[in-house]
Nucleic acid binder design. Structure first.
Lengths: 197, 197, 197, 197
DNA sequence: GATGAATGAGCTTTCATTCAT
DNA sequence: TATGAATGAAAGCTCATTCAT
């Protein structure tokens, strides 16, 4: 059980991560200074080192935060007693929902290998693999259940993730289509690659 | 007609751009130093400033180089007397071919707004819009010729470009599938979203 | 009211300005490196950027410091209830006193247009104009009060300022004449151009 | 006797010196690049090294050029069979004429000790001393001939040179007073310090 | 004589990080 | 906890100078 102090610290950390993500998303990791992040939070540079021991840590925890959310959601979808088609539909929608509602965090995840080395990188790549495997699992299930055509699982997954991740590049909260409409449309078109007609 | 001197200088510039692209792709723009690029070419830092007046210029010309290739190829495809289906197939294949054969250059194009301001940015975004419009044109042509379903052109284009661009993230020249196989497979699956069945 | 912290920082800034002025005076602005200045203060190059955001700023504040002193002193003289002759005498002496006691700072002020552009330059030139006008004012007062001959105010002021500013070029604290003797002599000779005889 | 070749080279050298002086005057010695000078002459940087072996040399010969002119003129004045008053008048006028007609060259002469070391510096300072001594000579002559008051020669010379040199700081060819008018006025006022009334 | 190309030393500036208070 | 101040390593860039052609 977490003390009130721990809760406060955790909250502050999350605040910092959100601020960092927002600026990383706009200026890129290297283009962002600790000063930038601190300023956004009305803190001083020095203070941030109380919460995160360095800039890498900031980026790393941004990755973790969003990957945890993604994976948790996917586990839920996988565990549900739905058809493979519905699961894939839900996965697509969930991904887009997260990519649009947590746009900054999502954008931060680009090219971890440019920013990390060793342990952190392994850890992050592991998470990504895990996430990708959930998609594979659903597709495979669909094939086995004869809901889907006999597709090349990896290729289809790559197409799916490509299309889904690309949304952050163009999605605009004030654009003509809401995140929900986009996810509906995407699910609709993308499933055409898979479902028997 | 270009003199031998001009040809030589143009060749040198291209060499530099390729070296720069390779390192930008690996370390990111900000993570790359002029020293890094120079070292790769067995030049000195200072010499590079003889050819490009600053680091931005390097990145900008990387963008231009690949966009020129892309747009030229697309014009060719559009102008050909093929069916819309074949044109889209060819566009997909051409994109993947370029994205894999010029992997580094392609990767460099990520998030220009993080690195450029003003004129350069406008110019680059204009090129991107142009390129996107060629895809729209083909899709629209297919719809009018009744080859394709009545789809949401922009959404389909976004799915296409997302899937295509994502290839750079995972394509491995030593991987199990060749670039050609990938492009065949992609064309095959992606067209399922469009063609009447 | 200024806190003890503000006082401390202001003092540090002044220390830095004095060190900078001393080296600018010896080596010229461009010939001086930030390293030079820092070394003189037993600081590191980087630390100086905590107090002044760039080299220009250093030069600009040197200008301001000395101009503020000069103008303040002149206001005092102008406001005094002395004859024009005495005022001019005092102005001459004050100028030489400052030019010799703050030799370095004074020397730094040479050719601002070679080092500044835009706003800073305008600001500095404004100060200079103001200072020159005080001299004009005194001369004019003397003419009106019939203490001085009917001279060309601007020309006489140019002669005065030329002679006065030139002192920094040759004044030597260890020379045969003290600053005070020089200022006496100068006042004596220069007034001959003006006073009725 | 100089061959046609030597004449051509000498002419080219003078052209270069004038271009250099013009830019030195505007941007300062350190602020001027060899490129700047070459560009003004539609030459390449490299070519200039055929005529002058380095940047210092450029500055040094600017000094020499103007000092030679100044000293030659002064010798002429000194040697003339005029009264001391007229000689001083002529010296004043000659100085202003040169300072205004060769404004750039004149301005370049500021603070040689910031740019030179050793031999060059000694040489330049020697020239300056020589020039100053000519003024002293005239003043002394005037005193001995009872044309001038019994003034402190050095102090008066400093005032004279200060006023005269300062003209480059404010003289404007398009200003309200011509160089000739200025020199008349200056001679008039400055002599008041000296001549018996 | 002229020049294009290269070089390398040196400069200003930035910034993650530290630490005493 | 928070911060002001300091640091130092590294980066981008400039430029006088050289030299083969």
């Amino acid at each position: 059980m977490s003390s009130i102090k721990e809760r406060k610290i955790r909250k502050k950390k999350e605040e910092i991560l959100r601020a960092a993500a927002a600026i990383f998303a706009k200026k890129g990791y290297h283009g962002t200074t600790m000063e930038d992040v601190a300023a956004k939070l009305l803190m001083t540079k020095g203070s941030m080192y109380y919460y995160f021991k360095n800039k890498d840590e900031l980026l790393y925890h941004c990755h973790k935060m969003i990957m945890d959310l993604s994976i948790t959601k996917m586990k839920e979808i996988i565990a549900s007693s739905k058809s493979a088609t519905e699961k894939l539909e839900n996965a697509i929608k969930a991904h887009i929902t997260l990519a649009t509602s947590e746009k900054s965090m999502f954008m931060v995840m680009h090219k971890p290998s440019q920013h990390f080395t060793d342990d952190y990188l392994q850890d992050i790549l592991q998470d990504r693999t895990t996430y990708a495997q959930y998609f594979d699992e659903i597709i495979l299930e669909g094939i086995l259940k004869k809901e889907f055509n006999h597709v090349d699982v990896k290729m289809v997954r790559m197409i799916l993730l490509g299309a889904l991740n690309w949304t952050q590049e163009w999605y605009d909260p004030n654009g003509e289509k809401s995140a929900e409409e986009i996810s509906e449309t995407f699910a609709n078109y993308l499933l055409k690659m898979l479902v028997k007609q």
